[in-house]
Each structure stands twice: as C-alpha cells, then as structure tokens.
C-alpha cells in the first residue's frame, strides 16, 4: 500500500516537468504549426545555463530559472526568425528535416563547447526530503512540481485572459484571418515559438538539479514530449496536462512493479505513442 502510494506520488511529481516541456512543444506545433524536433535542445540550453551560473557565479537554480527562460526564449526567437519563418510555407517534410538538423547541430555544438560529461548542479538542499502525511519525497522534485504548476497556471492565464493570449489562440485556429483583424501574425508566431523554447529552458534548469546537464539530455525529452502531445491530440494544449500525468504515472509504475523496471522506463513513451495512435485509428476510422 505504501509502495503504491509512493509510486503514485513519484509519478505525479514527474508529471509537472513533463507537462512543462510538452506544453512548450504543443505551442510550437499548435500555434506555429512546426513539428519541432529541436525542442529538447532548448531544454538542454536551460540546463547548461543553470550549470554555468551555478559553478561560475554560485547562483541558485531558482534564480537561474529566469536567466534560462530568457536565454531559451532568445535562442528560440532567433531560430524562428532565421530558420523556421522561411520554411513556414514549405512542405512538412522540409520543416521536419530542418528542425531535426537544428537539433543535431545544437547537440554537437554543445558537445564541442562543453564535452560529453554529465554535470550535476548540486545546491545544498539537493538531497533534502519533505515529509507530508507520512510520506517522504525529495525537496527538489517537489519544488519542481510546484513551480511547474505555477508556470502552467501562468501560461493558461496568459492564453485565456489576456488580449495577446487571445491572439495566440486565434492564430492557432486560423492562419489567414488574424492579419485582417489587425494582428501582426509574424510577431505572434515569434512570441509563441519563443515561449515554447522558454518553457523547455525552465524545465532544463529543474532537470540540471534532478538529473544533470549534458549535450544529449534533450533528446529523451523531445521524444517524451511527442508522446504526450500525440496522446493529447497534436497541438491540443488542454489535453497536455492529463497526458503528461498518464505518461509519468506509467513510467513510475513500470519502474516500481516491473522486474528490472528501471531499464524499461525509457521505453514507456514508445508504448504510449503506439497505444494512443492505435486507439485513435480504431475510434475515428
């Protein structure tokens, strides 16, 4: 019973970061209309910003969050302006090859600059645990979860309650009309893509403490974010949170209850994609 409860909590806590990364990807896919394979690399950038600010300046990751968000936003905005915008009207295959290429380029650039080592950000509270209702869990995963919930609430507030968010939702639903209504669609795309990257960058800071920073850390998260948005329905932002919970829970259960589960965890996302695509093709045929 206690193991079950612990598993549920582990799953829930992990879901926060997943939802953050996947919401970012859903913005890129749903608003800008770009299947971005380089999404995880924005996360990697956030992780390295956190690492270098911590080692060089002694900055707490909590403070690095803002810097990482800004850095990822900037890299995202530049990628949009220089790379994505010219291919917006191109066939989807070209777009995917482009973002795939961007992913490889950023990974190898990081490899060249920082080497392949994994680097952990270890603030003094890294190993602390929190006890709540007789259960204990790590302070860092707990804080990451709370922060993710807060950030996602902010995102939903922005999209639902502000005029600019209104414009973002409009552009996601129709590409032609917003311009005629006085909305500078290019700026909305730029903002959405930048935000998408910033969400990944923030998640990267959290992972730099929970896991580590490395040039290849983003890849697994790109795949998991894809699993989540496929489950949610491509570009459907509302479905992202429940889908993130499902993936994180599935991973937690596999890790706890499947013998040798630790090794299988990284394959769960694939099962999730497989099952949701199969289910959809059954239901909507």
């Amino acid at each position: 019973m206690e193991i079950l409860l612990q598993t549920l909590i582990n799953g829930l806590l992990a879901a926060g970061v997943y939802a953050l990364v996947a919401s970012g990807l859903a913005l890129a896919v749903g608003v800008v209309g770009i299947v971005n394979f380089a999404h995880g690399e924005f996360l990697m950038i956030g992780a390295f910003v956190s690492y270098f600010l911590f080692t060089a300046q002694g900055l707490d990751p909590l403070i690095s969050l803002g810097a990482a968000a800004l850095a990822a936003f900037a890299v995202g905005a530049i990628s949009y302006y220089g790379l994505i915008r010219p291919v917006l009207a191109a066939p989807e295959l070209n777009q995917m090859l482009l973002t795939f290429g961007l992913s490889i380029a950023l990974q190898n650039l990081a490899l060249l600059l920082f080497g392949a080592d994994t680097r952990v950000v270890s603030p003094p509270y890294q190993g602390s645990t929190v006890s709540l209702l007789g259960l204990s869990f790590g302070l860092v995963p707990f804080a990451s979860f709370v922060l993710s919930v807060a950030l996602l609430s902010g995102l939903y507030w922005f999209l639902g309650r502000t005029r600019l968010g209104f414009a973002v939702r409009a552009v996601a639903q129709n590409r032609l009309a917003p311009g005629l209504l006085g909305i500078e669609t290019q700026r909305v795309y730029l903002l959405a893509f930048g935000l998408s990257a910033a969400l990944a960058g923030v998640a990267g800071v959290m992972l730099s403490v929970m896991l580590y920073a490395s040039p290849t850390i983003g890849f697994a998260y790109t795949l998991k974010a894809f699993a989540i948005i496929v489950m949610a329905g491509l570009g459907n932002l509302r479905g992202v949170i429940p889908a993130a919970v499902v993936l994180a829970m599935a991973e937690a259960f596999v890790s706890t209850y499947v013998p040798g589960g630790g090794g299988w965890v990284e394959a769960v996302f694939f099962l999730v994609i497989f099952v949701s695509l199969t289910y959809r093709s059954w239901r909507f045929r």
């Binding site: 414009a167 639903q173 032609l176 009309a177 005629l180 209504l181």
Partner: peptide
C-alpha cells in the same frame, strides 16, 4: 476591413469571442 473568401472564422471560439477578436487589436 476584409471579409475573406471562405469566411475564415475561428471555429473553436464562441460567436462573441470571434467578434471580440475583430475588435481586440483595432
């Protein structure tokens, strides 16, 4: 003002939200 070919509405928004978007930036 331009009412484009094919109407180009925002299908998942309510009638009033569609209208308000028409005013939102103008």
């Amino acid at each position: 003002g331009h009412v484009p070919e094919g109407r180009q509405l925002f299908p998942l928004m309510s009638v009033e939200e569609n209208l308000l978007l028409g005013a939102a930036f103008l």
